[in-house]
Amino acid sequence: MSQLDPGVQIKRRTMSRRQFVSTFGSLIGLILLIIIMYALKPNFLSTSNIRNILRISSINGLLAVGMTFVVLTGGIDLSVGAVMGCAGMYSAYFAQTSMNKHWMVAVLVGVGMGLIIGTFNGVCVSYFRVPPFVGTLGSMSIAKGLTFLLTDAKPIPSLSTEFKFLGGGNIGGWLPTAIVIMLVVLAICFTLLYKTRYGRYIFAVGGNLNAAHVSGINTKRIICSVYIISSVLAALAGIITSARVTSGVTSTGDGYETNAIAMVVIGGTSLAGGRGRLWGTIIGILLLQCLTNGLDMLGVNTYYQMIIKGFVVIGAVMLDGLNAED
């Protein structure tokens, strides 16, 4: 700053140890985890396994990225898992070879489902002031019902080849489509969040709703929009999953919302809103997926896996909390 009172001595802005740990704790954790896994199981870092991890991270990560937007405004979206299943099912329905439709139709139907449920969530939360927890809990059940209704809970087999490429295909023979989609989504989301007015407004709304409103921000529209983003990304994840498992399955996405929330929280985004970072969420996604994959490879008993994951989530938030006091 140019104009400083001469009386104030400014030291260079250095990071205290605590700030360092709270900012980079998850990243360090991720790196440590990768090293440990590699030491125990060299196959962990084989090309095909890295590709596996990235692919599954892409699909589950879509939910977490969308959730980050919602959580930044101080809300929560419990419906993402159900939306994922719902969109996956409806897009699969239109992607059946027997329907003979273009694969884009199926994708649009799926995304459309996300759009509808997301708008419903957003309108409930912003304009009708339903608490996000309650509103999205309700639409979670609605989405689940819509999913079963379509085929009477039966799975949808034999999808068109083009559609299946979205989930199982590799672009150029080696780069999974899912990863490409995720990268595109991430590029858009980073731009939205850090390079546009809209992103700034999201932080403002989450940080102080009243102040944002008084500053002339249409806070209702901002809040509404994040639920739409979250649902559309969840729908995308659902579509990719259907394409990947080459069928529509009603149980897709069950319980995924808790994972998504965990990833966001590990990434250092505060559930109170206004404070957080998207790259943190990416680390959260990778951390959880590497952990799952690694523990699976080591053959660690599923019950221990649950316990470990629980500690990781809590530990990450503890690290983050170290800095909250100032």
Binding site: T196, R197, R200, F203, N208, N210, V214, I217, G274
Partner: peptide
């Protein structure tokens, strides 16, 4: 604190909150 400022946001971001439009070119800040 209640209506004037978004406390966790930076001084810079608080300052431009109502006038961000001025710093936007083809949609980007």
């Amino acid at each position: 604190k209640g209506k004037g400022l978004v406390l966790p946001m930076s001084i810079c971001h608080n300052t431009t909150l109502p006038s961000l439009r001025k710093f936007t070119k083809s949609g980007l800040l």
